[in-house]
């Protein structure tokens, strides 16, 4: 059962991130909640690539043939982090503009459309 803990933790992070997004009253807070939600993918990727007793796939100071964890999911996770950083930056820029135009960061008060 303990071996399934990472999957449960990932679900936990997704649900709390979603809860934050659903109840958010501030666009900055909403963006951070999305970032929390996305951390669940890191957990899943690392969990499925982990091998019991294995070390990090860096062979600088260990002999060839040492058992290491899967490097592919770690490379994928790097991509994941870059994408998250760009998404957060884009959303924060949109939040800045929304505040400029609407005068508020509360999503509920951003209903008025100006043409």
């Amino acid at each position: 059962m303990l071996g399934h803990l990472p999957y449960a933790l990932a679900a936990w992070l997704i649900l709390w991130g979603l809860y934050g997004i659903v109840t958010s009253r501030n666009l900055i807070h909403l963006v951070i909640c999305l970032a929390v939600l996305q951390t669940s993918t890191y957990l899943i990727l690392l969990a499925i690539g982990y091998k019991a007793g294995a070390v990090a796939p860096i062979y600088a100071d260990m002999p060839a043939g040492t058992v290491a964890v899967d490097p592919v999911v770690q490379a994928l996770m790097l991509t994941d982090i870059v994408v998250e950083a760009t998404v957060v930056a884009l959303l924060l820029a949109i939040a800045v503009q929304a505040h400029e135009r609407g005068g508020s960061l509360d999503p509920a008060r951003l209903c008025a459309l100006k043409g």
Binding site: L2, G3, H4, L5, P6, A47, I48, G49, Y50, K51, A52, A54, P57, I58, Y59, A60, A64, G65, A68, V69, D70, P71, V72, V73, Q74, A75, L78
Partner: peptide, 28 residues
């Protein structure tokens, strides 16, 4: 499968060939 019971072939091949083929000790 519970965490730790990884048995994908691709990652193991890369761990084995990265240093001899590409001289890169950081497989990632």
């Amino acid at each position: 499968d519970p965490m730790g019971s990884y048995h994908g072939a691709y990652g193991e091949i890369l761990n084995a060939v990265s240093v001899p083929e590409r001289h890169s000790t950081n497989v990632v």
